[in-house]
Design a protein around this nucleic acid. Sequence first.
DNA 1: CTCGCTGGTGGGACCGTTATCATTGCCGGG
DNA 2: CCCGGCAATGATAACGGTCCCACCAGCGAG
Lengths: 346, 346
Amino acid sequence: MKSTRRPTIREVAQLAGVSRMTVSRVVSDPDVVLPATRDRVNRAIADLGYVPDKAAGGLSSRRTGFVALMLPTLTNANFASVAHGLTEVLRGSDYDLLIAYTDYDLGEEERQLRNLLARRPEAIVLTGASHSREIARLLLAANIPILEIADLPHRPIEHVIGFSNHEVGRTAARYLLDRGFTRLGAIGAVYDGSVLDHRGEERIRGFEEELRRSGLPTTGVIRHGIAPLSYDHGVGALQELQRRAPDTQALFAVSDLSAVGVVMECQRQGLRVPDDLSIMGFGNFEIGREINPPLTTINVDFHGLGSQTGRLIVDLLGSATPPAREAAHRVDVGLAVIERNTVRPA
Amino acid sequence: MKSTRRPTIREVAQLAGVSRMTVSRVVSDPDVVLPATRDRVNRAIADLGYVPDKAAGGLSSRRTGFVALMLPTLTNANFASVAHGLTEVLRGSDYDLLIAYTDYDLGEEERQLRNLLARRPEAIVLTGASHSREIARLLLAANIPILEIADLPHRPIEHVIGFSNHEVGRTAARYLLDRGFTRLGAIGAVYDGSVLDHRGEERIRGFEEELRRSGLPTTGVIRHGIAPLSYDHGVGALQELQRRAPDTQALFAVSDLSAVGVVMECQRQGLRVPDDLSIMGFGNFEIGREINPPLTTINVDFHGLGSQTGRLIVDLLGSATPPAREAAHRVDVGLAVIERNTVRPA
DNA sequence: CTCGCTGGTGGGACCGTTATCATTGCCGGG
DNA sequence: CCCGGCAATGATAACGGTCCCACCAGCGAG
């Protein structure tokens, strides 16, 4: 086993009998070099198994080819969809995605961000971040496009592609109210200073707001457990709800995963869905379509959100003139109720 | 808005009145510089909002701090767990994970790998790769530790941390045979030359092998659809099974997701589980615990697999003496049947 | 007092690539 | 026949760090 170092552009140049620059050109812009030369260089590249070093290239050209993405977690299918849509677009333009996740831990945010910035990404995409003073300062100092996604912040840092989580909650409440329910409940996670992502809390607040507007009590609004939410959360939250507001007719869960957990727990308890308890969720997870009865939910096109974000980045980085900060984009991708069978007119 | 470039070590040095080297030392090994000097430098760093450029540093020190991970997909919760376990360990040693995924597309593998190698990772972790001639060549030429995970290949490239997918299939078959079933079925994906990951196919082959050993027919073994598998796959595969082998008593699905889809479809069809059809899956996904009845499955500790991989990497990179290739590690993390209620003695 | 050592710091060269400008050879037009 | 212009290629200087060694005080031992 030859433990020799990786071949560099120098060695390729030497073997092909050309200068380093010519090799560089063959790799990045082949058309400008004579076919005969190009072939010779390509052969040398193949012979040596040369793979260009992007770090060195980036240092020189000031273009690292990185786009940074900061997520609360990888485990959530919707965030995975975002990453997916984003990668699809970025691959076409030769950007690599650099993913960091915080696991909803506030302390990790700054650490992760510094780490990300040390790689000199050309743009950065953020989800559900808290944006402390120091975070904002670091971001601005990076002097690259900043994109906040999956939310619609009132005071955005720069670009926004998302939807209103508050509106999600309101839509759910209105949907249930329209069907004549009056004893409404909602379940989400406990939100305190140590929690990074406030999007779930926004949804639950939107729900509460609509309840208050209609003069209804908010005793059925339960904050239980902590993010990330999953099936189990629904089980526990339902039990708490049954203690606190046993007469609840209809329930909104801030995540489909919780909602599915609730449906399953209802089955175990022998409660009929939706006759004994109506349930709706958020996120349009695949499992919601499969359970019996299938889950009513609110859909957001996360994959499209990811690809739109990707396209905006490519645009932003492609345009020679760095757009002024006041030309920040703000895109609402909207949301839609998907009616299935877990809710029925009362 | 000052659109000035990011501050470099030079400017920090100037502001603090020291040389660049001293700044470098304060960042990477603070203890060797005098407290007074250190404070001065740290103040300058804070004032300027200096964030070191790891690409530049890596170029010089030949240590990029990257560990590469190649996955079929991000969307699978088990792979996400692996990534999770891996990150947890690597964070502690200041490595960043560079994730690439192929979406089970064979053509993407080489492209992604080249891309990864262009970032000069210090180690590379692979899952379910096909290892074509060219791929293997690229990997070996990189001259870094190579770790294959989530499988137990007969002819590994170097290190292996995984479990036998073939054994998963055999274990499932034996489990069902032991309970007295004789008309067994299995569902997986179609496997042809264009598919990257063979782990599901290995599971199904192990199942078939055990069937043949017992002199039972393999007509109930269905290859349906293509990876990635999900709930919907189970629905379609069950329907195909019902056409091809309607008298099947017990069924193994190569993924819990398919298995859950089967259970749900059974509910819709009014079939009782496990009385009319026994079902077991693989992967121990959370949803399997929640459905009614809960899903019998085969568990592998994917999170632990990820963290073990991380620890091995840290070991390998930490040891000054590069270990000889013959000292390759081979770890079997094992597997275990988790009995729940979807299977019952016949 | 001198010498050697040690801890703290600085001065260059270098890591592998690309931007930029210079150089070369060739072609066609005046 | 000469010269301007263009296409192809080369030389050199960055890019932002760290490695390696030299330097310099200060201090204890001989």
